[in-house]
Design a protein around this nucleic acid. Structure first.
Lengths: 221, 221
DNA sequence: ATTATCTATAGATCTATAGATAATGC
DNA sequence: ATTATCTATAGATCTATAGATAATGC
């Protein structure tokens, strides 16, 4: 009679944690923090509810853990992409080039990674439009370093713009991307099928095209 | 002994409904549909919980009523603004002019109207980035007619662009605006105080400036 | 002996409704 | 007589924890 192979504790723990994080990532992205119960997550992860508390302490702790899992990787990929771009073009930084260098890593990760990574981007995007104080002590400053690098890169491309202009530009870009990550299907419906909100390659190129013409001096009304 | 003046039933009803809708608007905008309980709303509105059910049937019914209250006014103001613009400039429609004509009414309503109107815009913005199926049967098609007019106006300004380009442009613009309505305070923090996420006049002008340079042909990577 | 997992349940909500009471309607 | 408001509560969750059991660690 074959016995089940012994699995080390560290393995058992890691697998359970990963299943819980995967399920939580999907469900939080789809329904928001308050739209999901710990039981929903436990059922999806095929573990017991109490295991979620055992590993993550509380629902807020789990949410924080979901965000923390992929943040460093994305942040580092963004910074590396922008550093590589700057090293490649030297002084000849353009708005389009900076936007591409900033955006491409997250798109690449989502396209190559699949549903988990995509859900993560959607979740971060939703949080970025959540009014202050609307969520439990969630720390979103993890993404700040890459944004500083992006602002610096934009300044090289457009030394004539004010710093406030650059930050507003980032804000608009960030909002546009949020809309795309959410994949609401709204643009598909409005356009009568001309646009596909799952087509991330097209979304990336459209975003770059639209925003590379921006950063104009503010027109007097 | 002075007796309290008799108040007609229609008055009592209207005031209670308005108080409930006002409270629900603020709280849903701040915490999302699932982040607020009917009791929270009733307490804020200073009415009993059961009165919410009496007038709106269910939580989803209340949410729908909140959205329905201001949708027609905003939609009509947008359409009128764009029709007036087109009548004024004739053939000489520009992207900047179209964007301004589309955006201005909502900003004007929020600036003149105060917290209720602003909360409403924030709520609609948040819904627009909620993944499909994430909310109870909410109908957002109320805003579709104005969007069609906007797309037509853009086409007059840029007859060379494909229809898909125009819809993507709308999607990006819509996302950028979402970010601004949410007033997360994030841009204030990132910019070290250079930007003020409550300054709706500046946000409107920045949005027009950034997006009026857009709608470029898609660059090959 | 320690760590992972399961059982059972406390205690606090939350949505919704039935039924009573207090106004206004006519 | 009808409509608005209040009282009381059913029934279903939901988060979290205490304590038991079943693995692995060494």
């Amino acid at each position: 009679m074959a016995r089940a192979p012994r699995r080390r504790n560290s393995e058992r723990r890691e697998e359970s944690e990963a299943r819980i994080l995967d399920a939580a990532e999907q469900l939080f992205a789809a329904h928001g923090f308050n739209g999901v119960s710990i039981k929903d997550i436990a059922v999806a992860a095929e573990v017991d509810t109490s295991l979620v508390h055992y590993y993550f302490g509380s629902k807020a702790g789990l949410f924080t853990a979901v965000l923390a899992r992929r943040a460093p990787g994305i942040n580092q990929a963004r910074i590396k992409s922008m550093e590589d771009y700057e090293a490649a073009v030297g002084e000849a930084v353009t708005v389009a080039g900076a936007v591409r260098a900033y955006l491409e890593p997250a798109f690449a990760i989502a396209i190559a990674g699949g549903e988990g990574e995509h859900a993560y981007m959607s979740l971060v995007a939703q949080i970025s439009v959540t009014p202050a104080g609307g969520l439990p002590g969630v720390d979103l400053t993890a993404f700040d370093p890459a944004i500083e690098v992006f602002i610096d890169l934009l300044r090289s491309a457009r030394p004539d713009a004010t710093r406030a202009d650059l930050y507003w530009f980032y804000q608009m870009l960030s909002g546009a991307i949020t809309q795309s990550w959410a994949r609401t299907g709204r643009i598909d419906r409005l356009s009568g099928g001309l646009c596909d909100s799952d087509d991330m390659e097209t979304i990336l190129e459209q975003t770059i095209a639209i925003f590379s013409g921006g950063l104009n001096p503010i027109a007097t009304p």
